[in-house]
Simulated assay, not measured.
Amino acid sequence: MDIHLNIIGSLLIILALVHSIFPKYFNWRTELKSLSLMNRQMMMVHTFFIALTVLLMGLLCLTSPIEIIETNLGKKLSLGLGIFWVIRLFMQLFVYSSKLWKGKTFETIVHIIFLILWTYISTIFLFIYFK
């Protein structure tokens, strides 16, 4: 099971780093211009803290897989992380509009990759808790 946490840790670190390209990739300089200063800055700050949280989750998985798997605290942490990622999977399925990816090859591939990723991460964390 620790190999799965190492894989998840690596993937989460990569995901956290990918957040750094969001402003340029999504053209936030132009797209967010119409927002108030507060909303614009909140978008940037929240993106930073999401990336930081995902990075820290990844580092935790890489540095402490045995503790996560074998201790009561680790199992409780796994439950919380499992719930977090199940909710993220739910959002991917039911909150994001299919208009964002349907009929677009790249976006559909990314959508499917994230469905697989959120399912994998959720499953591993919940399996650790319930085993």
Rank of each mutant, 00 (worst) to 15 (best):
G74I: 04
K33S: 10
S36V: 09
I116Y: 04
L62Q: 10
I13W: 11
M57I: 07
K75E: 08
L62P: 10
Y25A: 15
W101P: 10
M44V: 13
G80W: 14
I7R: 02
T47H: 11
F84W: 10
K33V: 01
L11M: 14
L93A: 11
F130G: 07
T71H: 04
E107I: 07
V86H: 00
T63C: 08
I112K: 09
F127E: 01
H19D: 01
S64V: 00
F84L: 15
V45D: 01
L32M: 09
P23H: 10
G103Q: 07
R40V: 03
L17K: 02
N6I: 05
E70M: 06
N39W: 13
K102W: 15
L32Q: 05
I83S: 04
Y25F: 15
I3A: 08
A16H: 07
K24E: 12
L115S: 12
D2C: 02
P65W: 03
F106Q: 10
K33N: 09
H111E: 07
F84I: 08
V54S: 01
L5V: 02
I112V: 15
I83G: 04
S122K: 01
I113G: 01
V18E: 03
P65M: 05
G74L: 03
I124S: 03
S97D: 10
F94N: 13
V110M: 08
W85V: 11
N27S: 12
I109A: 11
I112H: 10
T119A: 13
G80R: 03
T108F: 13
A16E: 03
P65H: 06
